[in-house]
Design a protein around this nucleic acid. Sequence first.
DNA 1: TCAAAAGAAGGTTAATTAATGTTAATGGGA
DNA 2: TCCCATTAACATTAATTAACCTTCTTTTGA
Lengths: 226, 226
Amino acid sequence: MKVKILYVEDEPFLGRIVKESLETRGFEVKLVADGALALTVFNEIQPDICVLDVMLPNKDGYTIAKELRKLRADVSIIFVTAKIQTEDLVKGFESGGNDYLRKPFSMEELIVRINNLLQLAQKNSKSKGVEALGKYEFDSSKYELRIGQTVRKISHREAMLLQALIENRNTSVTRKDILLKVWGDDSFFNSRNLDVYIAKLRDYLKEDPSVKIITLKGVGYHFSAS
Amino acid sequence: MKVKILYVEDEPFLGRIVKESLETRGFEVKLVADGALALTVFNEIQPDICVLDVMLPNKDGYTIAKELRKLRADVSIIFVTAKIQTEDLVKGFESGGNDYLRKPFSMEELIVRINNLLQLAQKNSKSKGVEALGKYEFDSSKYELRIGQTVRKISHREAMLLQALIENRNTSVTRKDILLKVWGDDSFFNSRNLDVYIAKLRDYLKEDPSVKIITLKGVGYHFSAS
DNA sequence: TCAAAAGAAGGTTAATTAATGTTAATGGGA
DNA sequence: TCCCATTAACATTAATTAACCTTCTTTTGA
């Protein structure tokens, strides 16, 4: 499958050249000229990489980046800017950018940096969609948990929770973060709800003892799986 | 502990300025002017980040990078170069570089990119492995303490405390440092709490008398283990 | 100067409280 | 109705607090 790129750029001439140039190299590029549209298009095409101009009408690149990160923590973001102020650079990395390119840039440089990020992303998350969890496989788009021949459909909440754990695999997540991500708020009742769902997941995942959800009492959970 | 940087640069004037500038920001910088020396110095100081000029006498930056990667796969490498040819950029990433900076660059830009790589590296290597403590083995990501065939699950606090001791193995830690690290504050009650947990760890570790938690009354503890 | 007394710091074990586990009952929407 | 999310009820475990004990240090007075 082609690598999808969301390219947000308001200069039409530059935009078209870069888009075509990237397409020649086998990327699938969606060009958006208006910052306010970026999120909508992002949700539509689910790109692997976002290339964002910083100066944009309606909504600047940094703001977009922050919003994108919330939607998908693992998306790769490259900023492109004519500004050379270093505070912008700082802002760029702070708002969740993975790389920063100054205009004018060469196509080769952009492509190299794109490829670099793709490799990184691949290392971090293998082939997305289907996650290997020990002997299990979790298909986050189908809400399916497979082990051997057995397929178990899991519910929306179960899937969200499992996803949240997977995103923090081999590190710890706080209960609060999970609650905010999965339930949207961390009230007392939702907190007990989380306990219930953890129990369910543990039950689903009990066939492979190497897949573990360890409780960090007073803190959160630590999910580990090969 | 300070972040250590190996900086290979043959222009003495630039080298000194960058070195001093980085040191002002709290980095520990070793400046090397000769490519052929880079490896030796690398082994000596075990840096967290390497900043390599590409054009160097005796051995160029790309070659150095490849060799460094062989020595330590997880080291972060930033190339710095006056060349603007894009083939160099490609070569840079291919030879194992993590980032590429064109001269002239601003200090801020360098620092931002350094910090970015540090964060990345931390994410990747977070769940570090298994510590040998005399006859025991402590797996900090699984919260397991093993001796012979016996595996004991320990709690989060127990693990944090043990980790804090291990990090200061064969030296002394103050109670205050431990309390801040494990409990977040050093109030009276938490201080007594620490006593309780020290007792637990001593109990867990009593099978091997060479593993010792020695009390330094009025100061802290001294943890020793082969 | 020295021994006894008083304190302080920490050791140990037990009791208490808070957090989470588990299973079942309830309730609401396609 | 059926499924899933939520709430409830009771069980379990970890963390904290308490109580009492031991050890070392400091103070004090003969």
